[in-house]
Design a protein around this nucleic acid. Structure first.
Lengths: 145, 145
DNA sequence: CTTGACCTTCCCTTCATGGGAAGGTTTATG
DNA sequence: CATAAACCTTCCCATGAAGGGAAGGTCAAG
């Protein structure tokens, strides 16, 4: 199978497949007589695995660990679970950060008339006047009360 | 004021201040006789504005727009609000993505014993067996029922 | 035999910084 | 006064995870 075929059947672009090979995430592909990379069914499975793990937000480095565990038939499932749990923690932390940002932004925009006049609590908030824009651990003061 | 002083009083590193200057986000700094950048109070205010906007997740490009509006005393507050609302939308979309990822990960990890045995629903899920790892718009099938 | 669709390697771009080298300046100390 | 530490300058390189595109080789169809 040529790289383009694999790209189509895995959803991983040819460019990205070559990139994964270059950083050692996947082994060097076999080569056909013409120098083209030549893939088999296992390669497609591996790339689908990678694709799913990346879609779940695992870093390429973590995907490497997961791939090793996947190939290691004597692995302990606890090792896999540890990687996943750590990632869940990171995802949840990021969610909280974004929620805090969203709340602050919503507060500022609700205070803003949004008309043709120049008075703008959003800019005032960013400039540090009449309230705080801190996104965590700090109480938000009213900017329009 | 030297760049180091400004860095300390704004929380923006000297490196980053120079970067902002190089991309035109802030104007070229005045120079003292020795060639050092020389800053005044307005520069500190501007950098604090930038710092707050970045903390709210605005891209540097958006921060540029916000700075222009901030300096434009005849701006319409609606223009500012539009930038903010668009950003809120992006933030909310990202939150939903991450929540979906988190839910899928939690589901997989709850199915995994996490002991010394090799059987692992997490890896099976990533490999595409017995369930789906899709993170949106697709129903999740049970992987351990 | 030519056209177009592949494939190859190679280098540049993104985004928002950080690291560190090589060299000039200023300040504090012995 | 000499020297060392702590600044500052510009310059290029690295990050993560790819994408863009050039220059050139290969292959299948018409």
């Amino acid at each position: 199978m040529n790289i383009g075929t694999v790209a189509k059947s895995t959803g991983v672009s040819a460019k990205t497949i070559r990139y994964y090979e270059s950083i050692g995430l996947i082994p060097n592909a076999a080569r056909a007589g013409n120098g083209y990379r030549d893939y088999g069914g296992n390669d497609v499975e591996t790339l689908r695995f990678i694709k799913r793990a990346r879609a779940l937000g695992f870093s390429v480095e973590d995907v490497g660990s997961l791939l090793s565990l996947w190939h290691d038939k004597t692995r302990a499932s606890g090792d896999v679970k540890a990687v996943a749990l750590k990632h869940i923690e990171a995802v949840e932390e990021r969610i909280h950060e974004l929620e805090s940002i969203r709340d602050t932004l919503k507060h500022l925009t609700q205070c803003c008339q949004g008309d043709e006049r120049p008075d703008c609590p959003i800019l005032e908030g960013l400039a540090g006047l009449g309230g705080t824009v801190e996104t965590s651990k700090t109480q938000k003061k009213s900017c329009c009360g």
